[in-house]
Simulated assay, not measured.
Amino acid sequence: MKLVKKVAAYMLFASVLLVGAASCSKESDNHEAEIEAVQLKEPVSLGNAAISGVKITIYVSKDADATKLSPVFKLSSGATISPKNGSTQDFTNPVKYVVTSEDKAVTREYEVSVRREAMLSNPFDSWEKKPADASSDNSIYYTPTNSDWSTANIGNVLLRGLGYNVKNTVDQTEDAFQGAKAAIIRTEFVSDKPVFGQNTPIATGSLFLGSFTTLHLMTDPLKCTSFGVPITRKPLSVSGYYKYLPGDKLTDENFTVIPNGKDSCAIYAVVFTGTEPLNGRNVLTDSRIIAKAVLKGGKQPVYTKFDLVLDYKRDVVPGENLMFTIVCSSSWDGNIFKGAVGSTLFVDDIKVTTKNI
Rank of each mutant, 00 (worst) to 15 (best):
I185P: 11
N153R: 11
I185N: 13
E117A: 14
L207Q: 07
T151D: 01
E117Y: 04
N168L: 07
F189M: 05
E111Y: 02
Q198L: 11
E102Q: 10
S211Q: 11
I154V: 15
I140D: 05
D171S: 15
T204W: 03
L209A: 09
S121N: 11
T151P: 00
L158P: 04
T187I: 04
T187N: 14
G161F: 00
N138E: 15
A132P: 08
T200Y: 02
R116I: 02
S135K: 15
N153Q: 05
K104H: 11
R116A: 12
A105Q: 12
A176I: 03
N156P: 00
Q172V: 13
S135F: 06
N156C: 12
T173P: 02
K193F: 00
V190W: 01
S206H: 08
G161T: 07
T145D: 01
D133S: 10
M119R: 13
I154L: 14
N156L: 09
N146P: 01
Y164V: 05
I140K: 15
S113W: 02
V112E: 09
L120V: 08
A176W: 01
G205Q: 08
G197F: 07
P123T: 12
S191Q: 06
I140R: 14
S126Y: 11
N138A: 15
K181M: 09
F208V: 03
E102L: 07
P194F: 09
D137R: 00
S150D: 12
S136N: 10
G163C: 09
V114N: 09
S150C: 09
F208S: 02
R186W: 01
T143N: 10
E102S: 11
E188N: 14
I202C: 05
S101W: 07
N165G: 01
L209I: 07
N165E: 13
N122T: 10
K104A: 07
S135L: 11
D192W: 01
L158T: 15
N153C: 14
E109C: 13
E111P: 01
S191V: 10
I140N: 11
W149C: 07
G210V: 02
D125K: 10
A203H: 05
L159Y: 04
E188R: 14
L159W: 05
T107G: 07
E109Y: 08
L162R: 05
R160Q: 10
I184Q: 11
D137G: 14
K167P: 00
D175S: 12
D125V: 08
E128N: 10
W127R: 04
V112F: 06
Y164H: 04
V195W: 07
S206A: 11
R186N: 07
K129R: 08
